[in-house]
Simulated assay, not measured.
Amino acid sequence: MIVGVGSDLIDIRRIEKTIDRHGDRFIQRVFTEIERTKSDRRRLRAASYAKRFAAKEACAKALGTGLARGVFWRDMGVVNLPGGKPTMHLTNGAEKRLLALMPDGHRPIIHLTITDDFPLAQAFVIIEAVPEDRAA
Score class of each variant (00 low, 15 high):
Pro82Trp: 12
Gly83Ala: 12
Thr91Ala: 03
Val79Leu: 08
Asp40Gln: 14
Thr37Gly: 10
Lys51Asn: 11
Lys51Trp: 05
Lys56Asp: 04
Pro86Cys: 11
Thr65Gln: 09
Thr87Leu: 11
Lys96Ser: 15
Gly70Cys: 10
Asp40Ser: 13
Arg42Cys: 12
Gly66Ser: 13
Arg36Gln: 15
Glu95Asn: 13
Met76Pro: 04
Met76Arg: 03
Val79Lys: 06
Ala46Val: 06
Pro82His: 13
Gly64Tyr: 07
Lys51Ile: 03
Leu44Pro: 03
Asp75Cys: 12
Pro86Ile: 07
Thr37Val: 13
Val71Ile: 09
Arg45Gly: 03
Ala54Lys: 01
Thr91Lys: 01
Ala46Asn: 06
Thr37His: 13
His89Asn: 13
Asp40Glu: 15
Arg36Gly: 09
Lys61Val: 11
Ala58Met: 09
Ala68His: 11
Lys51Gly: 09
Arg41Pro: 07
Leu81Ala: 14
Gly70Arg: 09
Arg43Val: 05
Phe53Gln: 06
Lys96Gln: 15
Glu57Gly: 06
Lys96Val: 06
Leu67Glu: 01
Arg45Cys: 05
Arg42Thr: 06
Pro82Met: 12
Ala50Tyr: 04
Arg45Ser: 07
Gly77Leu: 07
Ala55Thr: 01
Glu95His: 14
Leu90Arg: 01
Gly83Leu: 08
Lys51His: 06
Thr65Asp: 07
Arg41Phe: 10
Val71Arg: 02
Asp75His: 11
Lys38Cys: 08
Arg69Val: 10
Leu90Glu: 05
Lys51Pro: 01
Glu95Ser: 13
Thr91Arg: 02
Ala60Ser: 13
Phe53Trp: 15
Leu90Gln: 05
Lys61Arg: 14
Lys51Phe: 00
Arg41Gly: 15
Leu67Ile: 14
Leu63Ala: 07
Ala54Val: 04
Thr37Trp: 08
Asp75Ala: 06
Met76Asn: 00
Arg41Asp: 11
Ser39Gln: 08
Thr37Phe: 11
Arg41Gln: 15
Val79Trp: 02
Tyr49Cys: 06
Ala55Asp: 04
Val71Leu: 09
Asp40Thr: 10
Thr37Pro: 02
Asn92Ala: 15
Ala50Ile: 02
Arg69His: 15
Pro86Phe: 10
Arg45Pro: 02
Ala46Gly: 12
Glu57Ile: 04
Gly93Lys: 00
Arg42Lys: 15
